[in-house]
Simulated scan of single mutants.
Amino acid sequence: MKSKKRVITITIYSLLILLALISIVPFYMMIINATRENKEIIMGFSFLPGSSLIDNYKTMMDYVNIWAGFRNSLIISVAVTLLSGYFSALTAFGFAVYNFKGKNFLFITILLLMMVPGQLGLIGFYELNKVLGFLDTYIPLIVPSIASPFVVFFLRQYLSTTLHPALLEAARMDGAGELKIFHTIALPIMMPAVATMSIFTFIGSWNNYIVPLVILFSPEKYTLPVLMGFLKGSQVAQNLGSMYLGIAISVVPIMIAFLFFSKYIISSISAGSIKG
């Protein structure tokens, strides 16, 4: 019996290690190719880094200021993540705790909005910002994140399973206001779920390509995905090492986000499962 269990354990761990290697290899190839020159990349993959990293970097910087795009994307993504996390948590708190007229209708509306692709309203979104005078600014890329249907839905479901009504009643008896209850009781309870959604919100904003491409006109305001799109259509596209280097730079923040916040995904999932 013990030997059978040991074989199963070894098999599971072997499969997990294999899956981890399959996931890591593309990133490793990308980083290695960023240090190699064209002819070396064309000849095939190598596990050893090349010596053309600086040349590839100079070639890339001759055509685009990758760090300006990095800065722009970082500003937008951080602002979107903070606004979406806070206001979605506040909205979810209202849906989970209070009973008011039209509550079910509004929640169903949120569910329906989750199913509508954002690209369908892109023309109307452009015309609205044109009338408001917000074109070529970061406002259309940041402010709409306050209303995030999926994040509200996720946080509302999470809060409904983790927040006990007795906590709210005790706080009200102590004289706490509703905003204080939200900030001192509900928000800390929701933090694992907020952190989980913040990861996906950050990644979605960082990788957003079509909306910045439509809204922004000034090259100095371009986000990193837009700059990478222009990079593919320039002379740099002939230098594969520079292309790999640009992609590697654009992927780093996403890897860091998962590295530091992945534990919150596990904790939020386990919290919901334990409660259920």
Rank of each mutant, 00 (worst) to 15 (best):
I110G: 06
S250G: 08
V214R: 00
K39M: 14
E37Q: 05
Q157V: 07
M1P: 13
R6E: 11
V143I: 15
G50K: 12
I199C: 02
Y98W: 14
F258I: 12
D55E: 14
Q235V: 11
P117L: 03
R156S: 15
V252W: 11
P140D: 07
G121M: 05
F261L: 15
G229A: 07
T196W: 00
I76R: 03
L167V: 09
L167I: 06
G124E: 09
S46R: 09
I41H: 04
P149K: 00
S46L: 03
E178P: 03
V194F: 00
I17D: 03
F27T: 09
Q157W: 02
I181Q: 04
G85S: 15
S242N: 05
I22C: 15
M191W: 03
S3I: 09
P192Y: 11
Y209N: 11
E178T: 09
M197C: 15
E220P: 03
I12T: 03
A248N: 08
I75A: 05
S268P: 00
L74S: 06
K101G: 10
I274W: 08
L112P: 00
H183N: 04
D55V: 09
K58E: 14
F153G: 09
L113S: 13
L48E: 11
L224D: 00
S242I: 06
M1V: 10
I17S: 07
P219T: 10
W67F: 14
L48R: 12
F27C: 11
P165V: 07
N65L: 01
T59Y: 08
F93I: 06
T162C: 15
A170I: 01
I254Q: 07
G272I: 04
M228S: 11
F230Y: 11
T137S: 11
G233T: 02
F182Y: 08
L19G: 06
N99H: 08
P149E: 00
